[in-house]
Amino acid sequence: MGITILYILIILLFTISFKKDRKKTKEALKKSWKSLDHILPEFLFVVVIVGIAIAFLDPDTISTLIGKQSGWIGVTLCNLVGSITLIPGMIAFPTAAMMINNGAGYMQIGAFISSLMMVGVVTMPMEIKYFGKKLTVIRNVFAFIFTFFVAYIISIVMVGI
């Protein structure tokens, strides 16, 4: 649904662009293809690696490891899992809700969601291609540390320390 609207908008934009300037529109298409082509190899690699990772980590295994009692060890574990895997939000949020219903703690889930979003270990080859090694490592380390803080605050708000 959303995607149909998006493409209708894109077609509209390209039509306007084409009416205004044919040459520029051609150039835009060329540039679109060039940047897609640039990242396609790394993209395919990431998709397959993530597929393998998720195949191993089913929700049952995860929720036994990260209950409320697991404390900071559970948080660290969640952070690691969230950093390494790359689960789309559409799957991650309902899974997180399900894990909480199955006894996972808010602090652990907060860590999982945050690291999932901010830290990307498998996407590092792509990030390095754009930003170089140093910045990629710094950004991910920063984000990793930050997720512990997020988890702590979320647990205070949700369950009162």
Binding site: I3, Y7, L13, S17, E27, K31, W33, S35
Partner: peptide, 14 residues
């Protein structure tokens, strides 16, 4: 993905 790159191409040119 193609949507992102198509918008990018337009952005770049215009």
């Amino acid at each position: 993905l193609p949507a992102i790159f198509l918008v990018l191409g337009l952005l770049d040119v215009w």
